[in-house]
Amino acid sequence: MDTRYTNGRMDSAEDAASEALIRELSRHRAVRAPASVLPVVLAGAGLADAYAPTDSPIGPVFVAYNREGISFVRLAGDHDAFESSFRSRFGRPARNLERLPRDLALAIERQLAGDVRAGLRLDLRELSEFERAVLSKAREVPRGEVRTYSWLAREIGRPRAARAVGAALGNNPIPLLVPCHRVIRSDGHLNGYVFGGEAKRRALEAEGADPDELERLARSGVRFVGSDTTRIYCFPTCRNARRISERHLVPFASALEAAASGYRPCRVCRPAV
């Protein structure tokens, strides 16, 4: 028996008990850190991205992040495919994690549930200034509401760039968290989506929007709705529009028509300025 720890001052029973305990404590040295420590630390230090699956309204997605914030969101599936598309887009590797750190997972969950104060940071460094402006404007569209490409173009001060807005949204690295699905065509067609049209429809439905109704309204030529009591007109999904009762609701085919009827644009959804 190893008697290194004997020091003569303890009585022998106490001594033996301590020795056994010390041996047991030293066996703790066999414990290893979980595999997720390295990727999370490198992501936190800004030296690499880490990614893990998480739930979303359109099913499981992979979410990659680094020190600057969330960098990439794609439908969960094959790890190799995700990692190679990450590398080809960003020129750096993403390391797989079993699950996201708790605080990050919570912030994502809150943001997806519509909490605008979730405080989620996004890493949009690889994008052009124009693309960043488009995405940051798209983030202002409230949950359950939709705006149009031309509206967004006008709002960022590039009224003739509606097509470029569409392209920038199509290049969105962080769908769902940057809600590009809330931007559609003026004619009510949902138009493209990085995860496909069906996913765009589901993402809108999950927020309480009704894509069929949007398309029906647009097909019947309605672009805006006004209230004959306030004489204000809105996008049909604006929270102010949804308060107008059937009896007072006035449909408009264009901003011009609304203005000619003596209506002013809503200051919340800004159908015109």
Partner: peptide, 15 residues
């Protein structure tokens, strides 16, 4: 060099 630091110390710091 930082990755090496993590690999070298993560086990004992975790314990």
């Amino acid at each position: 060099a930082f990755e090496r630091l993590v690999l070298e110390y993560q086990d004992r710091l975790y314990r």
